[in-house]
């Protein structure tokens, strides 16, 4: 009987998901509406101006794929952590109002025609990041008890309320916007990965991966909180401190990504669930696996989005949302059976 197993099988799982990610990274750049000649693309180097294959591969597809990796990783890890902290497997990175706050920020920048950039970031991104921060600050300062704890039922309620409130502001601004602004708002709200530079990816990646590292660092504490705050305390977890670290870090990496991509729904719900089926609930494993699988998952969804009705590219948020509905049904049926 394999009673005491150790964590060796977990390491195996990590390797498998790493291989999946590397395979995704190698294969998806070759798929697209235009056939590219890989040998020709690789012959000229990154900045060969007159090499069309290289241009498509390195200037169009690769930055977008890397952004997909960072965004998928961040949203999935944030989802896994929110689910653990709220002890609710239907929680997602957007449950506490981060995405609607970000949307309000972005829509404000669009409606007031703030078309300048600061430090290379367009105003829409900066405003949506500030919106995400504002939403986090609002929700947590409303809920925080005098002992510094965050009661989960009240947090969920505050998150839902914040989401409705910000969504109503977005609708109001949308209603008074002109035709061109309206198009940009709708487009932003759909969520997408269409960038054409490495600078954007490089500017958000350190924040995202530092955040994920910190969350892995407190993984065992998060495990205990996911089984109950009181019993976690009696096992030696400083619950208010871990809640603060967890909620703020997960919200920050979500806000960072959403500022660039817009809200890409359901990734943060689906990926932790599927990862859990493979590696179990231990967040020391679930976080790195969700990171790798989330990155692969979003890249694959975006590849579908790029090619489904090529040459028209669909925003990836539409693809993930289309997968999200059936996934929820599956989840509910599965829960009923248990």
């Amino acid at each position: 009987m394999s009673i005491i197993m150790g964590h060796y099988s977990y390491k195996m799982n990590l390797v498998i998901f790493l291989l999946l990610f590397l395979a995704t990274l190698c294969v998806t750049p070759l798929i697209g509406s235009t056939q590219i000649d890989l040998a020709n693309a690789l012959s000229g180097g990154v900045h060969a101006q007159n090499n069309l294959d290289a241009n498509i591969l390195f200037q169009v597809r690769l930055p977008r794929i890397l952004l997909g990796a960072v965004a998928g990783a961040a949203l999935s890890v944030a989802g896994a952590v929110f689910q653990a902290l709220l002890r609710n497997d239907l929680a997602a990175p957007f449950t506490l109002g981060v995405s609607s706050g970000a949307a309000l920020g972005a829509v404000l920048a669009i409606v007031f025609n703030l078309n300048i950039s600061i430090l290379g970031f367009p105003m829409v991104s900066l405003f949506s990041f500030l919106g995400a921060l504002g939403a986090i600050f609002l929700v947590f300062s409303l809920v925080r008890t005098r002992h510094g704890e965050f009661p989960t039922s009240i947090l969920l309620l505050a998150g839902v309320t914040a989401n409705f409130f910000f969504a109503s502001m977005v609708m109001f601004l949308h209603y008074i916007s002109d035709f061109g602004q309206s198009f940009r708002i709708i487009r932003w709200l759909m969520g997408g990965l269409d960038i054409t530079d490495y600078q954007t990816v490089l500017s958000i990646a350190p924040m995202v991966f530092l955040g994920i590292g910190l969350l892995i660092y407190v993984g065992r504490d998060l495990n205990l909180i996911s089984t109950g705050v009181h019993s976690a305390t009696s096992r030696g977890v400083n619950v208010p401190r871990i809640q603060r670290i967890g909620f703020i870090t997960a919200s920050l990496i979500t806000g960072t990504v959403v500022a660039i991509t817009g809200p890409i729904g359901f990734v943060g719900l689906i990926v932790p669930h599927i990862s859990r089926l493979f590696v179990g609930s231990d967040l020391r494993i679930l976080i790195p696996v969700s990171m790798l699988f989330g990155a692969s998952f979003l890249i694959i969804c975006d590849t579908v989005a790029r090619t489904l009705i090529a040459p028209t590219e669909i925003p990836v948020g539409i693809i993930t949302a289309m997968l999200g509905g059936p996934f929820f049904v599956w989840l509910l049926k599965r829960k009923r059976q248990v």
């Binding site: 009673i3 005491i4 653990a84 002890r87 497997d89 495990n223 996911s226 089984t227 179990g280 609930s281």
Partner: peptide, 10 residues
């Protein structure tokens, strides 16, 4: 002991 996530006994 309400448990949301599937943890093993071990």
């Amino acid at each position: 002991h309400p448990m949301v996530f599937p943890f093993t006994i071990q």
